[in-house]
Structures are given as structure tokens and as C-alpha cells.
């Protein structure tokens, strides 16, 4: 537990710029996805074993709070994928390590390019569904 506290306090003190935040968000998004995945795989298996429960679960996921959760999931997925690709690519082409700021910038730009339309479409649909005319 103390290691975790030290990590947070010293992490804030480290001032590692983009590289540090890339690493932190990669870790956080990965854990978030894993947590979601455990619930998701179990829930989807219900389709084969308990279809009534599966239907109930799907109805639960249509509630507004899960609509917000989905947006976070989309962000975690897209960021983790693109940053992961950046890491693997930089390991494949080590000469590109020479400019880490540029690689980070590309990573963030690509994340936004894929994330923005996704979030807009999903949020737009949710707003239409929950607040739109019946």
C-alpha cells in the first residue's frame, strides 16, 4: 500500500512530461479495460446459459449511467490501442525514439481522430434517446 502512495506522490514530483503521462494512462486504461472485460465476458456467456438473465443485463446496460460508462470505455480502448501501437512501433524502429515528443503528438492526434467521431455519435444517440422527443 505504501508503495502505491509513494508512486502517486513521487509521480507528481517527477515531472516526466509526455512520456510519464503516456505510461500512466496506458496502465490506467489497461486496468479499466480488464475490469470491464471480466464483467463483459461473464455477461455475454449468459447468452448461452441463461438467456433471461442475459436479456435483463442488456436492459440494465441501456440505463443512462452505463451510457456514460461506455464513453469512458471507448476512450480507454482507443487510447490504449494507439499508445500500445506507438510503443511497439518505436521498438521496431528505434531511430524514431530520437523525437519522443513527436511520437506522443502523433499518438494523441490519432487518438482524437478516432475518438472524437465515436464519442460524438454515441453521445449524440444517447442524448437523442434520453432527452429527445418520444
Amino acid at each position: 500500500m505504501s508503495t502505491l502512495v509513494t508512486t502517486i506522490t513521487d509521480g507528481l514530483r517527477y515531472k516526466g512530461k509526455q512520456g510519464q503521462w503516456a505510461w500512466v494512462f496506458h496502465r490506467v486504461s489497461g486496468l479499466g479495460i480488464m475490469f470491464f472485460l471480466v464483467l463483459h465476458v461473464f455477461g455475454m456467456s449468459l447468452a448461452s446459459f441463461n438467456p433471461a438473465a442475459h436479456e435483463q443485463m442488456l436492459e440494465l446496460y441501456k440505463q443512462p449511467i452505463f451510457a456514460i460508462g461506455e464513453l469512458f470505455l471507448a476512450a480507454c480502448l482507443v487510447y490504449h490501442a494507439i499508445n500500445g501501437a506507438r510503443i511497439a512501433l518505436l521498438e521496431l524502429k528505434p531511430e524514431w525514439w530520437a523525437n519522443p515528443a513527436k511520437a506522443m503528438r502523433w499518438s494523441i492526434i490519432l487518438t482524437l481522430i478516432f475518438l472524437a467521431p465515436t464519442l460524438l455519435i454515441m453521445a449524440g444517440r444517447s442524448i437523442q434517446h434520453f432527452f429527445g422527443a418520444p
Binding site: E55, L58, Y61, F66, A74, A81, M122, H129
Partner: peptide, 22 residues
Amino acid sequence: IFLALSHFWIQHILIGTQALSQ
């Protein structure tokens, strides 16, 4: 990257959460 992102795209963009069903 290919599998997960396409899966998310099919279920949430193409189909949409509200249209998901058993």
C-alpha cells in the same frame, strides 16, 4: 487492435447500444 476496435464499432456505432438484444 483490429478485433477489439471493430467489435466495439459494430456493437456501438453500427448497431447502437439501445438496439442490442438477446
